[in-house]
Each structure stands twice: as C-alpha cells, then as structure tokens.
Amino acid sequence: MHTFRRLMKIRTASAGLVMVAVLAVACTLLPPLLPYDPLEIDLHHRFLPPLSGGHVLGTDEIGRDTLVRLLAGARTSLLIGLSAMVLSTVTGCLTGGLTGFHGGWTRRVLMRIVDSVLCFPTIFLLLTLASFGQPGAPTIVGIVSLVAWMEVSRVVDGQVRALRGREFVIAVEAMGASGVHMLLRELLPNITGAIIVVSTLNVARAILMEAYVSYLGNGIQPPQPSLGAMLNDAQEYLRPDPWLAILPGLVIAIAVIGLNFVGDGLRLAVDPRQGRRA
C-alpha cells in the first residue's frame, strides 16, 4: 500500500499506469461493442481515412476496420507480454532462487551462461530462434521467455544472495527450517519489489519483441491482427495513407512507454533509498 502511494506520487509512473490501464480496458471491453469483426473484409470501403464511413479510425487496404484490428492486435500483444512475463518470472525465480541460495558451482555455471547470453543483442537471438519455430503466439511467448527469464534470474540470484546470511533467515534456519521454507517463505517475499520491477519491464520488452518478430513475418500470421504485422502491411501505402502505419506505431509506443514508466517508477517506489540517491 505504501509502495502504491509512493508510485502514484511519481508523475511519469502514474501517467504510465493510466496509459496501460486505458489500453488494457479498451482492448478487453471495446471490441464487442463495435459493429465490426477484425477479419471482416469490405472491398467497397478500402483506405477510408479516420472518422469516415462509420469507421472511427478508418479502414485498411482490404476494408477492414482499423480500430477493431488495433484493439485485437493490442490484446494479443498484452496477452503475449503477460504470458511471457509469467513464464519468465516463475523460471527466473526458481533458478535465481536456487543459485542464490546454494551458491557453489551450479551458480557459477548458470550465471556465466546468463551473462554471456545477455550480452548478445537480444533481437538477433530472437530472430534466429523465431526462424526455426512454428510461427504463432505460443512460439513467441516461448522465445521471449527464453531470454527474459535470465534477467529475472540474475536479479533474484543477487537479492537472495544478499539476504541469505541475514539474521532473520539464520534465525529460522536455527529453528529447523528447510531450504524450501527459507526460500519461499522468508527470502522471496522480501524481494517481491525487485521481481515486480523486472517483470513489468519484461512485459514491455515482450510486446516490443512480438512487434519486431511479427513485423518481420515470423510472428503472428495473417489474417490474425498483430501490431507488428499491421506496421508491415502499412509500409506499402505509407505515402498516401500514413495513418495505417502511425496508428499501430502509436499503440505499441503507448504500451511500451507506459509499462516502462511504471517499471521505472516501481524501482523508486519499492526502494525509496534508491530514489533519494538518484
């Protein structure tokens, strides 16, 4: 509760939270209220500009309603972001928790792998992996998680290591607590803040990654709407109909910037000492 109040005091963070919330609410509640289907083709009304012919944001090259497609694409993006986040957070907490707790050679090996993978530009790794897999949402979730869990793992490992020798952990150890109890009941609850921060930033990253991959044709396959694929489609008509590119770009920006604002804000809100230093 204190954390939330501190978060709302940070202007960028509250703005980010509003951006993400509006987007999430819009793409869950709005589509059923609109009279169009994202896959519905209407060749008589192609390239309608926004606010014309009953289409709030116009139509695309085969007459599909842009607003409905944007909302559906954003929904896919958010779902992919959330699934990748859940998967990577769980994996990262388990691995980082174990290595941070036990140390030793497992830790050295795992952290060395994490470090060397994380120093590659993620996007190349992602595209390479994507070209091997069956295109689609589950593949993207898998691939993004494959990279994202390492960030979580590194953070959890560091924090668990820092807290492992603290007296409140030794105290329950002396009362007979098992490693599992110490990790799950004593250590992890004390680092939820740090975990939430990386996880939030990971959602943003996953959304951006989905857009990249779909833009390059290895992600969500047509005719299913995806923000990245919409950007790609719009390329051909950039000159006469720029809004077809601007709109999905804007939605990606809102989601990613909003989540980053929230994540950065959380970093300060969770650990006020860091805020004073900054």
């Binding site: 007296e167 409140f168 329950v172 009362m175 009941r185 609850p189 004390n190």
Partner: peptide
C-alpha cells in the same frame, strides 16, 4: 533456540507478529 544481537534484523520484516510466532509451530 537462539536469540540474535540485532532485534531489527532477526525478524522477517514482511511477517506480522502472529505469522512470526506461528512459524516455529508450523516448522515442527
């Protein structure tokens, strides 16, 4: 049982007194 020097560091800051006192019962 052991009691530590630093009463600030030896209690899990995320637990209520009730949870802290229940822990040994649960452990055993």
């Amino acid at each position: 049982q052991m009691i530590f020097q630093d009463p600030y560091a030896s209690l899990n800051p995320r637990m209520t007194v009730e949870q802290l006192l229940r822990t040994p019962l649960a452990l055993h």
